[in-house]
Amino acid sequence: MRRLTAVILALGLSLAASPAPAEALKVVSENPPIQPGYNRFVLHSDRIGRDFAVTVNTPSATVFLPGQKLPAIYALDSGYGLAGPQGMLLGNTGAMEPAIIVSVGYLPGQTLFRNTDLLHNKLTQDGVTIGGGGAAFEAFLLEDLKPFVEAKFPADPARSVLFGHSFGGLFAANVFADKPDAFYGYVIGSASVWADPPVAARVAAAMAHAHGQRVYLSVGEKEGWMVPGGSSQMTDGFSGLMAAMTSKPGVILKTQLYAGETHLSYYPRLVTDGFPHVLPPAMALGASQTVLTPEVLARYLGVYSLPDGRKVTITRQSRGDLAGQVSGIPQVPLQQNGADRFYAPTSDLNVTFDKSGLTMVGVDGGTVRATRDKTP
């Protein structure tokens, strides 16, 4: 008995002396939002041994459904400072599904670390070797940063998107080749396939393991114009990836060769064209609808009860449109989207009315039923 007690005591002391497991990410600093929907962090990665500057933009979307989450786009190279603002504009105006934009970048003076992080294989040019850190950076994104974002924001783990351009596009292609299901969608712009030629064959082999990923693949027509005599290496890389993905099951692919554009000049269009492809809105823009009469609209007005006890109140706005409000959540406009069906553009949510209540359906298939309580 004494011996057993001594063993237990020794084990307890040993466990107490053992250091706690290191956190994957440490928040070095978190700046107060300078405007709604804008959050900036400096995060230290023990895995990589460096700090990263991470900006998180959240849309003005109203989360209606219980447990509803939003897709998240992870933009490499800080999204060149454009992906976050442009993504917010697209989501807030109904051009794409509202999404959280996570721009991943570097602190001042550390930008060249991208040449390590974004290349899975080493590359030697003019006696200088770069790259080789892609696998560690991929693990940082998937195992450290994504869980961090999903714990702090309503980000849907099943609907994340990876967005990269140039070396970032090559990195995105390598992630797809490693594990297509790592992301729901991929925006791959001007991938530097010349720096890692085997990636095209690896992408082709990975197609058998893809399950409906949405991919936007692009390049500028005049990417090689500054090279003496011209160069087709960027467009050749684009063609190789396109061939690897075209006419094969597993992805919903859209490709774009931007006529007259150079390596960087089309980047804003890469966002405005690529994001809506990987995250299309629930209702196509410009859909024509029959104008409903006030008598028909009056049928929808009233109070409805959700299963969790909250109330949904449907009212008329001053200009005649409908508006919906869930208890404790700001009111949102409802636009007609068919017979007895309306669309909440700020939530990317469809609301369908019937005689006994209404059904709300999110773009991700989340559904909730509300029964009618009374009418005005």
Rank of each mutant, 00 (worst) to 15 (best):
R50C: 00
V128Q: 15
E295L: 11
A259D: 09
T346P: 04
R369V: 12
D77F: 06
P71L: 14
G132P: 01
L285D: 13
M96V: 01
A195V: 01
L112I: 14
P154L: 09
T255R: 09
A99Q: 04
S192D: 11
G357H: 09
V102H: 08
V175Q: 02
S190P: 04
L322R: 00
V128L: 14
L112A: 15
D51F: 08
T313S: 09
K311F: 05
R47D: 02
D156L: 04
K26P: 02
N121P: 00
S45Q: 00
L107Q: 12
P330I: 12
A16L: 15
G133K: 00
D144E: 15
P333C: 13
V227C: 11
A72K: 02
L4D: 10
P280F: 09
L119I: 08
P376H: 00
V175R: 03
Q110H: 12
V332E: 10
A16H: 15
L241S: 04
T246L: 06
Q256M: 15
A61Y: 06
V161C: 11
G132F: 09
A287W: 05
G79R: 05
F52N: 11
L9V: 03
M207I: 04
D196R: 05
G185C: 11
G133L: 04
A323N: 06
E97Y: 03
D364L: 12
A191P: 11
T246G: 06
G237H: 00
R202K: 13
S239I: 00
G185I: 09
V368L: 07
P345M: 10
Y184Q: 05
F148C: 13
A195N: 06
L118V: 10
I48D: 10
L119C: 03
G87C: 09
D364T: 11
K374Y: 08
G37V: 01
H120P: 14
A95H: 14
T111Y: 11
M88G: 05
Q336P: 08
M283D: 01
M96E: 07
L15W: 05
V363R: 14
D144L: 09
P21G: 02
R114H: 05
L123F: 12
G67T: 11
P228D: 13
P19F: 06
A139N: 02
P180W: 08
A339Y: 13
P19S: 14
I130F: 14
E23Q: 14
S103R: 00
D321Y: 11
A83W: 04
S29C: 05
R319M: 15
I329N: 06
S232G: 07
K26W: 06
D196V: 04
V42E: 10
D196T: 01
Q256V: 14
P268M: 15
D181C: 12
